[in-house]
Structures are given as structure tokens and as C-alpha cells.
Simulated scan of single mutants.
Amino acid sequence: MKIVIIGGTGLVGRQVVDRLKGEHEVIAASPQTGVDTVTGAGLEEVLHGAQVVVDLSNSPSFAEEDATRFFRTSTTNLLRAEQRAGVLHHVIVSIVGAEGIDAGYMRAKIVQEDLVKGSAAGWSIVRSTQFLEFLAAIADSAMADGVVHMAPVRFQPIASADVARIVAEVAVGTPLAGTMEIAGPRTFGFDEIVRRYLAENGDPREVRTDPAATYFGAPLTDGELVPTGPARLGEISYEEWRARQGR
């Protein structure tokens, strides 16, 4: 089976490629390899003979207008090229709670989801909670006057390796024609896990529990960062992930 991974050189993309390349013809496609979903450059060539496309591309900007333009243009170009090439299954990774978090980037991801749902071919949407790998970036984004402000809401982060494993399994399976939610094996307090992570990394910054704290600028209510219903859980605990980072 020929599988094209759009964004195959990124954090999750590299791992999906590694998981699939032993048993399938796997192509890692990105602007660095001459494939640009925004301009359409290289799409016809890379999709020739492909049965599955996994789209892990991401907008270079989180601003709503920019991100919406990226996902609308990129996804439209990709789906049209896939139809011409006879691709049978289109897979994307989206975000748990995207419709509830008041942020422009989340609304842009909903635009992407809606385009995929309208595809004439098979499709699958994997909605993930936040990656453990982004804990440092979350802390940095929440800092004001040297203090990290975190809301006391539930948070169920997942290791990117678990995301890659599940996405790889979905890619070679029957199209879901629906949405699967995935999350880490354990739920934390958002403030609790960030405080723990910084302390374990020798970061002296205070983490202050703040109900008014935002998430990359978006206000939060409890339940928005955890699955909304039944979810497939990852296997890698926070402790195991930390150990792997050390290695």
C-alpha cells in the first residue's frame, strides 16, 4: 500500500513514517521535499498510485485569519488532488474540544474538519488532546511578570509516540467516516502537571493556580481539555515519557 504522509517530517509525521515504512510504501511529503499543499506544487506527482493520505500539516501562524486560510486552501487542494489520483482514505489529526475553546486556531481546525467530512472518498478524523511535548511551550505562553498562571481544569496530555501509533493504525484500517478521540492514560490538574514538569526540569518559576488564566489566549472552562466521551487512551504514562526524554 502506498501511503503519503503530508507533514511527514514533523514531530508526529516522522514517527508515523517510521511505524509504517517496513510494511508499506511510505512517502514523507512536505515543502522541504518539494510538496506544498498551499500552492499545490508536487501534489499530483506524490499522490500518483497512493491509496492513503495522512495530513499532519499545520499552519505556520496561529492567527485565525492565517490559520483558516491555510487549512481551507491546503485541505481543498489536497482533497481535489486525491480525488484525481483515486486515493481511498484521508486521515487528519485534529484537537479534542476544538469546537468549545474560544480561539481562532480552533475555529480554523473546525474548518479543516468540515472540509474532510465533505470528502467523496473515505476519511477519518483523529482528535487528540495536547501533546506532552508541548508542556514547556504551554508554560511559556502562560507567563506574566515571571509567574506562570494556570487554570485548575482537567488536563489529559498524550505522548506524541502514542499519537503516531494510533494514527498509523487508523491509516491502514477501514475509514472511520467519523471521529475518534484519543488522550493520555491519566488525567491531571492543568496547574498540577505544569508545576510538576517545571520542578522536575529545575525551572524555578512559580506556577500560580489562577481560574482566570487563559490557554494560548483563550479562556478555559473545565472539561474542554479532556475527551468529551469514550476515547482511546495512550499507553505511555507521564513518568515513562519523562524517562524517555532523559534517554
Rank of each mutant, 00 (worst) to 15 (best):
Y105V: 11
Q156G: 09
Q156H: 05
P60G: 13
A151I: 02
V153H: 04
R154F: 00
I125W: 04
F134Y: 13
D55Y: 00
A98D: 11
G146V: 07
A144Q: 15
G122M: 06
I92L: 14
I125T: 07
R84G: 15
N77W: 01
S124K: 12
S94E: 05
M106V: 11
N58F: 09
W123G: 09
N77G: 08
A164L: 15
E82N: 09
A50L: 06
R69I: 00
R107W: 04
S124D: 08
S94C: 11
H89E: 01
L132H: 07
L88Y: 03
V147I: 09
R84N: 14
D140Y: 09
D140Q: 15
F70S: 06
A151F: 02
G122W: 04
L79H: 01
D145K: 15
N58L: 11
I158S: 10
A108W: 03
I125D: 04
G104Q: 11
A50V: 04
A85R: 08
R165L: 08
A67H: 04
G146N: 10
L115Q: 03
D55Q: 00
H90K: 05
W123L: 07
R69H: 08
A121G: 15
A136T: 02
V153P: 06
F71Y: 13
A63M: 10
I95K: 06
A159V: 10
F155S: 12
L115P: 01
P60C: 11
T76E: 01
V147T: 06
D114Y: 01
L88D: 08
T76G: 00
G49A: 10
M106H: 14
V54I: 13
V52P: 03
T68P: 01
E64A: 15
E65T: 13
K117Y: 08
L88E: 12
A159T: 08
V54A: 13
L135T: 00
D145F: 10
A139L: 07
T76Y: 00
T129W: 02
D162V: 02
A103L: 13
I95A: 15
D66W: 01
V52S: 05
I125S: 06
V111I: 08
Q112M: 14
S141M: 07
I158K: 11
L132I: 00
E133C: 12
H89Q: 09
L115Y: 00
A144Y: 14
A161K: 10
I125L: 12
D66H: 10
F131G: 04
Y105S: 11
D114W: 00
T68E: 02
S141L: 09
I92R: 14
I92W: 04
H89R: 12
T68K: 12
Q156E: 08
D66E: 14
L135K: 02
A151G: 03
S124M: 13
V148C: 11
V91H: 11
P60H: 09
A63W: 03
G122R: 07
D102E: 14
S59P: 06
A137Q: 13
D102L: 15
A108R: 05
A81H: 00
F134E: 09
F131C: 12
S61H: 06
E82K: 03
E65W: 07
P152I: 12
